[in-house]
Nucleic acid binder design. Sequence first.
RNA 1: GCGGAAUUGGUGAAGUGGUUAACACGCCGGAUUGUGGCUCCGGUAUGCGUGGGUUCGAUCCCCACAUUUCGCCCCA
Length: 418
Amino acid sequence: MITKPKGTYDVIESDALKLQKINRVIEYYCEFYNYDFIRTPIFESRDLFHRTVGEETDIVSKETYDFKDRSDRDLTLRPEGTAGVVRSFIENKMYGSNMPRKLFYNGTMYRYERPGNGRNREFTQFGVEILGSNDPIVDAEVISMPYRLFEELGFKDLNVKLNNLGSKEDRENYKTALKEYLNPHLEELCEDCKRRFNTNPLRILDCKVDNDSEVLKNVPSILDYQSEESQKRFKKVLEYLNYLDIDYEVDDKIVRGLDYYDYTVFEIVSSAEVLGGASTIAAGGRYNNLVEKLGGPSTPCIGFASGLERIMLAMDEFETTKKRPLNCYIMYINEEEKIKALTLAQDLRLSGVAVDYDTTGRSLKSQFKEADRMHAELLVILNSEDLKKGLITVKDNMTKEEVKIDENEIIDYIISNG
RNA sequence: GCGGAAUUGGUGAAGUGGUUAACACGCCGGAUUGUGGCUCCGGUAUGCGUGGGUUCGAUCCCCACAUUUCGCCCCA
């Protein structure tokens, strides 16, 4: 038997219903918040991700699907959505007009990592990007929009954790201070952190191993190393979040895994138990230098990404999503009735009625069961004797009341009663 | 990439080194010769993740691999 590749999964049955619901909610929230849909390629040139996400990050250094096509081009399956959107923004010269640009995407991403609960190699993210505004009000919107959207999907007890990484200069100052502080304590840190000390000292802050150690408890806060302007800006973000009634918590230990972030970074965390260690359902931040770095004009931007698989997992804890009921189920036994079922079904469907009928030749009894499984509202029971008189039986599956309708009025009857 | 656990029909699962792999749900058929959801009867794994090995004999013991899962790393 051929099985699915490791870390992939099929979306079927109740998962399919959940995913459809999520996609519907995303569609209309993005419409209300006035974001335009964008779809970018699932693979891009390898350089795009190496330059944006960061050569040193785990995502790029050990998780990308890199391959060469038949003409020897170096390509990479996208591990995240922002790089492609920014590339498209520049390539299509969107900065020329209609700024800021508010875009949303929803598609599959690929990372070669160990699969587990809420982690897959092919996974789906939706996200938004606002390109061309540095107003803190935009930060508040990008945080509050997914927050409200998740509430709509049934999430409760959501928490936003956010931090201010400041400008590149602020961060360099902080890194220096951090290393100065940590240097005498190096031996007390875990092996990973010793390595990070040189490669990416900021990541030591959210190390789980050393989390409780005295060393990290007294570590200097990045918030104390911000320029006055950066601090003022962050305060405004928090102020706007207060007005929007968003439950947040400033966490100066939050740093993100992608190199391009600066100023505001945030995570939205759910307390749903099924999520286990995958409780972050959305995360993002500001990236004011990325567009310029990729060759576009200096453009301040902010965005977030959210993993749909994790949302689907958590939805189990809320409510079961039900399949939409079928308007009408047609039953028949013999060939004459079957042909009537075939044509009547087509006529009804073209009139906007959701219709189905049996195609496995099972007993009438089983057809009733099947109709119930599909939650059919009306049952059309074809009978050769009645058909000869031009009559068709329609039974209301709720009241169990049965009427015989003239063949010529059947469609109107079903439309007005279904 | 590192460590632990799991893998038996459509589903939930019991089970044993030895002829037909429990039970329940579901599904199909029948009783009810064309009006269901209750009840009763019958059917429903040539098969116990895959490949080797030990054995007279393996679903059960051993090894490898795959997949899933928990923790680490990392992350949505």
